[in-house]
Amino acid sequence: MPPIRPLSLITGASAGIGAAFARALAARGHDLVLTARRVERLETLADELRRKHNATVTVLPNDLADPAAPQQLCDALAQRGLHVDWLINNAGYGVPGTFESNSWTAHADFIQVLMTAPTELAWRLLPAMREHGYGRIINVASLAAHVPGSVGHTLYSASKAYLVKFSQSLALENRHLGVNVCALCPGFTWSEFHDVTGSRDMMNKLPGLMWQTAEEVVHQGIDAVEYGKVVYVTGRVNRIIKTLVKLMPDRLSLWLSARQSRRFRKLE
């Protein structure tokens, strides 16, 4: 049985999908631990959730690009006697440009944040979930995990595909112990993601039916993990795209990916 007030740890909670998860889970009666780099945004969100939902909200600023960050975060939880029931591995960003146009440091930080940190947090927090017989892990992946890689943003699709496969194995290993794991795969989502990567003008060329709000993504993601769905693509349009790409010959899907990359990816 779930606890009366589950505790949810949300990474990348300062904006976008992460902040939407915080609001949605607080509304469902969860207490929260919020982590991201931007302290002021976290504190503002925490104050909002305390006032609106009477939630206990702990702010633990951290930069997951630091290899020591996951352990430091879990140590801080242990020092406060906090047991995490829901882990939302949401922190992420994009690295514009082609592979060779970025430094190795940029790539290494990206791999740390998008792949290593969520894996380590799951490894560190999963044993207590198993012991308690209850837990939920949502790894925020992407529709990009289900379509060919692109020209530019070289590691993005690869990192999201990793999260999908990781989630599948983790779900199979733990569902008999009351721990549900879901790879949540949104498509284009209204947030500041494309502003940060400098691709907003290009993204604005896409038709409105391609977009979802962060709130829509989060609502579907919470339902998906509760229902035991292991991989969930949000939105009907995104599910159609996934199916069409799966049915296409690889040569055709790669050609389409290359063509669309030039239109919607910042390559420098």
Score class of each variant (00 low, 15 high):
224 A>S: 11
62 N>K: 00
8 S>D: 01
140 V>M: 13
250 D>F: 00
134 Y>N: 12
177 L>S: 15
111 I>W: 01
155 L>M: 07
46 A>M: 01
26 A>N: 01
4 I>T: 07
133 G>L: 11
62 N>D: 02
91 A>N: 03
63 D>W: 01
54 N>C: 05
209 L>Y: 09
90 N>Y: 12
130 R>D: 01
166 F>V: 13
3 P>Y: 06
227 Y>T: 04
144 A>I: 13
30 H>F: 14
109 D>F: 05
17 I>H: 13
220 Q>N: 04
57 V>H: 04
13 A>Y: 06
181 V>L: 08
137 I>E: 03
152 G>S: 09
267 L>Y: 00
23 R>I: 07
137 I>A: 15
69 A>V: 07
80 R>C: 01
205 K>V: 00
202 M>H: 03
67 P>R: 00
162 Y>Q: 10
226 E>H: 09
43 E>G: 02
71 Q>C: 13
99 F>M: 00
68 A>G: 06
62 N>T: 08
190 W>C: 04
173 E>S: 15
242 K>W: 02
88 I>T: 07
67 P>H: 13
202 M>E: 02
255 W>Y: 02
45 L>D: 08
43 E>M: 02
172 L>V: 13
124 R>P: 05
246 K>Y: 06
263 R>S: 05
193 F>W: 10
40 E>S: 11
30 H>C: 03
68 A>Q: 06
122 A>R: 05
264 F>T: 03
20 A>Y: 11
200 R>N: 05
200 R>T: 09
41 R>H: 06
231 V>N: 02
75 D>N: 10
109 D>H: 10
57 V>N: 10
239 R>K: 14
43 E>Y: 07
209 L>G: 00
65 A>Q: 09
159 S>Y: 03
226 E>W: 05
251 R>F: 04
36 A>N: 08
128 A>V: 11
217 V>L: 08
193 F>G: 04
247 L>G: 12
125 L>C: 11
98 T>I: 02
218 V>D: 01
84 V>M: 04
188 F>Y: 09
125 L>I: 12
219 H>W: 04
220 Q>W: 05
262 R>N: 00
13 A>Q: 01
133 G>F: 15
126 L>V: 11
4 I>E: 15
166 F>Q: 12
28 R>C: 00
55 A>V: 07
38 R>C: 07
207 P>R: 15
14 S>A: 09
187 G>L: 12
2 P>T: 00
50 R>Q: 09
85 D>I: 06
68 A>R: 13
47 D>W: 12
228 G>Y: 05
3 P>D: 10
108 A>N: 14
172 L>E: 08
140 V>H: 07
161 A>R: 15
73 L>A: 04
2 P>A: 13
56 T>S: 14
261 S>C: 03
135 G>K: 11
192 E>M: 00
159 S>H: 08
142 S>E: 15
139 N>K: 15
62 N>F: 09
125 L>S: 11
82 L>V: 13
9 L>H: 11
135 G>N: 08
221 G>Y: 01
60 L>P: 04
245 V>C: 02
268 E>T: 12
158 A>E: 15
70 P>V: 05
